[in-house]
Simulated assay, not measured.
Amino acid sequence: MRLLIILLLLLNALALAAIRGGLGGAATRGEAERLTAQLTPERIRLAGDAVAQTAPAPAGGDTDAAPRTDKPATDGLPLPEQAGPAVAPSDEATGEGGTAGESASAAPPTPPGCLAWSGLGEEDATQLVTRLRQQGAEPVRHADTRIDTWWVRIAPARNRSAAELHERSLHAQGIRDTFIVQEAGPSQFAISLGVFKTERRARQLLEQLYAKGVRDAAIEPRTRTVYRIEARPPLAAMHAIESAADDFEQHRQSCENAPPNTD
């Protein structure tokens, strides 16, 4: 028993000597000794430290290092799981699957607007219609009969002699501004006493004649027919169309703004 105890003590002493290197073997090194034995321990950085050092310094001159993050560096790009699928151009932008340029070129040209020439006489209206048809436009003619002037006159006599006799009696009453109509027609041998643009002026003269004893004078409205021509001519041909008369351009306006006519 005593020999067994002595043997155990010897074994323990040998084990302790082996651990401390007493037997010539290298002792087991700890964590601190391993770090010291490395060639460049100061270059070792964790992944989070690398991100913090490459991040830009905060604004305002703050030189403190940015806080370390556990997220990997992405250089501002979305993470793979966050990136959505590429969006193809919609058919609305390109028009039925084509390109925008093809859609624009396929659009129909804008038709010319409706133009109207108003207040034309019969001769000018006929010339304008002819020019429009020569340029490929189809004009529409509207006629409007309106009062042009107000005529103060004495009704036509049976013949020229009777008209001259009546005129001499007017001169005797102090009415000198007279004229006997000579042209053939319903007003031949009528005695004209004045023509006015407004009915008010015509009635003023009529009252003066009544005051001088003239009872057979009367007011007759004189009418004329004016025309409005509507068409959609090519704009490039406007000069050729309107060169038939110097004032065609003054009569032209859009159909929406043209004064109404009576067909």
Rank of each mutant, 00 (worst) to 15 (best):
I147C: 10
T149F: 06
W150V: 02
W150N: 04
W151G: 03
V152E: 01
R153M: 11
I154E: 03
P156K: 11
P156D: 00
A157Y: 13
A157C: 10
N159V: 07
N159R: 03
R160V: 08
R160P: 04
S161A: 07
E164A: 14
L165K: 11
H166M: 14
E167Q: 06
Q173R: 13
I175R: 01
R176E: 10
T178L: 06
I180H: 04
Q182I: 15
Q182N: 15
E183V: 13
G185A: 02
G185L: 07
Q188F: 02
F189H: 05
I191Y: 00
I191K: 00
S192F: 02
L193R: 02
G194K: 00
G194L: 00
V195H: 10
V195P: 00
K197Y: 07
K197P: 09
K197T: 10
T198N: 03
T198L: 14
R200S: 13
R201S: 15
A202N: 06
Q204W: 08
L205R: 05
L205Y: 13
Y210P: 04
R215D: 05
D216R: 01
D216G: 01
A218C: 05
E220Q: 11
E220C: 05
R222K: 08
R224V: 04
V226S: 13
V226E: 08
V226M: 13
V226K: 11
E230R: 12
A231R: 01
A231W: 00
A236M: 07
